[in-house]
């Protein structure tokens, strides 16, 4: 309970500004420590993120994915459920989409792609539902269960890529048949579809949390389950639904990665986007309206970091290190506001 009480509270405007500053400073700090010259590398950073259509498409897609995984953290967090399983829920969604694409892949029909998305959303929600069930039924700590379920999902993905539909060369499934995808937009490929999904989820998350009675019950449950029970907000049901919605968003992120980026289930499909989403949600102080802001910040770090790493010939893990440092700093800036 202590952890969730700490996290369920949204934060004030200046805290968010402080966090953005922290994230930027931490990223630059990590780069600097790894011997990357921040100033002379800026042109490469620009080219690698926004400077040309291909990198712009990549950055937009990653932004969309992180928006979705941030929603996967944000909605359950607001209900007091610390969902660290965005990663596993994303993988579950990707597996769902893969199963559809490789079993009933019917070339030339956009309906297959739509079905992939639907199945991915359901798979993500169900995967989150396991953690939710363990929490509600047995009181299992959700931080641990959702985190551990990530590894279960990775292992299943590994089994599928290595044993069920293995590719002949790469550590991935065989590529999806043509036609199981969305119409392309020239140089931007199918990135606009990713953006469309993210915008829809963003709008829905904002509307649900800030403009519905149910949203008030989510926030109320996160802050005080006892008072929520008293006022008839059905806190258990509210929390379960929030977790399922979060899982669905992560599942959708998995579908986006499969259909837009990889066109196959690759072994490290998630690229830690699930964890990055948590960082993004914390960065924006769990305010749904700011979802894309947090996502853009971290997309720039991940995509730009990868570019810089390539230029400076250091490990691409540099962006992950930066993100991890950010998460630690963000957790440290969550103030414990004492009662008066």
């Amino acid at each position: 309970m202590a952890v969730s009480n700490l996290i369920a509270r949204p934060s004030r405007g200046w805290m968010i500004v402080l966090r953005v500053v922290i994230v930027v400073a931490a990223t630059l700090g990590v780069m600097f420590l790894l011997g990357i010259n921040i100033f002379s590398s800026f042109p490469s950073f620009w080219r690698g993120t926004l400077g040309n259509p291909y990198s712009l498409a990549m950055t937009l897609t990653v932004t969309a994915v992180i928006t979705l995984t941030a929603a996967a953290a944000l909605i359950p967090f607001r209900a007091g459920f610390v969902n660290l399983g965005g990663e596993g829920q994303l993988v579950a969604g990707a597996i769902g989409a893969t199963v559809v694409a490789l079993t009933i892949g019917d070339p030339g029909s956009v309906w297959v792609a739509i079905l992939c998305v639907i199945v991915a959303v359901i798979a993500g929600a169900l995967w989150a539902g396991i953690g939710s069930f363990l929490y509600e039924r047995f009181g299992a700590n959700e931080v641990i269960s959702t985190l551990m379920l990530n590894f279960v999902a990775f292992t299943i993905a590994e089994w599928i890529t290595s044993s069920v539909w293995p590719d002949k060369v790469a550590p991935q499934t065989r590529p999806f048949p043509d036609g199981t995808d969305f119409p392309l937009f020239g140089k931007f490929g199918s990135a606009p579809w990713a953006v469309l999904f993210a915008v829809i989820v963003w709008a829905l998350a904002w509307w649900l949390i800030q403009r519905t009675n149910f949203g008030f019950r989510i926030k109320a449950t996160g802050e005080s389950p006892m008072a929520s029970l008293r006022f008839g907000y059905a806190p258990v049901r509210t929390r379960v639904i929030s977790v399922l919605l979060g899982g669905a968003a992560a599942g959708l992120a998995g579908a986006v990665l499969i259909l837009v980026v990889n066109r196959a289930l690759v072994q490290d499909i998630s690229q830690s986007y699930g964890y990055v989403g948590i960082a993004a949600a914390l960065l924006i102080g769990l305010r749904p309206a700011l979802l894309p802001l947090g996502a853009i910040a971290f997309a720039m770090i991940t995509v730009g970091g990868n570019t810089l790493a390539a230029v400076a010939k250091v490990s691409p893990a540099v962006s992950l290190v930066a993100v991890s440092v950010c998460v630690l700093l963000l957790l440290a800036t969550r103030s414990r506001r004492g009662g008066s």
């Binding site: 008030f216 019950r217 926030k219 006892m226 008072a227």
Partner: peptide, 20 residues
């Protein structure tokens, strides 16, 4: 414990019964 949601607004706290 039972009566209020501290981070919700005063208005929402007065209206709590309506949200159910």
């Amino acid at each position: 414990k039972w009566d209020v949601f501290r981070s919700a607004s005063v208005s929402e706290n007065v209206l709590v019964h309506e949200y159910a």
